[in-house]
Amino acid sequence: MQWEVGSALNIASILVVVIVFAAMLIWVERRLLGFWQDRLGPNRVGPFGLLQVVADMIKIFTKEDWIPPFADRFGFVLAPTIIMIVILLSFSVVPFAPGVGIVDSNIGVLFVLAMASLGAYSVMLGGLSSDNKYALLGSLRAAAQMVSYEVFMGISLLGVVALTGSFDLREIVLAQEGGWFVVPQFIGFVIFLIAGVAESHRLPFDIPEAEQEICAGYHTEYSGMKFGMFFVGEYLGLVLISSLITVLFFGGWQGPLLPPLAWFFIKASCFIAFFILLRAAIPRPRYDQLMSYGWLFLLPLSLLNLLITGVVILSAN
């Protein structure tokens, strides 16, 4: 195992940029959703409504930090911090550009998967400690959904790993100099995309927090900054999945003319926008549909993808 840790400046700037970017996404999403629904979205606070984020932050920071008397205090406080921590840790292995990144690890892919599965604890803990039936239902759904989709999320990546011959994300990017993996691994990309949405429980797979069915699921009882952490955590997850897709299937920072960081930013932003489009367009499936879709369709498909990749690699050799 190799760990190459970047400079402190590197770490700090990445952390700040990622969090600010995630926060700004709240505004971006609302504006984009607005346009797709023939509305304007928030346009009153500051130019183009840009300062809406600031207004929201002021509001959420000054709200009463309320813990319901019936909740389990420890778990209740711990849950939102876990999701922030594990997702921020995942970012540590993402290679944004040559020389920009926190850690270069030869097991980067595995680390990301490991952190993603830890995220399930946050959601479960939040739901259980709230002592509320909707929260409990939400956390049950979240646990089942995240555990299920993790399986073929991992399998879908194995094609990429096999092609590169490494778990190191930086090496995976470098391996795409000749062509993006999205071409040979298209099925893997589609499966990873879907699994990624499910992992970050974004719409249309926001079943654990479906407002119409179970209030707000596992974060029903949360308010103030603790809710804010769940909220920003979700957007961080969105950024993470977009970054990973860029890295794994679309050649990371690679591209002509523009500086590498800009290419990374452009590619990741496209996927973020795509995720928001998903939210605007696709209705939420039923819970049983989600599970049967995963286990009966995506899992066989991902295994098939792996099998074919293996056959092709072996026959090429």
Binding site: G34, F35, Q37, D38, R39, L40, A281
Partner: peptide, 11 residues
Amino acid sequence: VFRHLFVATDT
């Protein structure tokens, strides 16, 4: 839905 990006808003 994506095409609505280029449609005038009702607001």
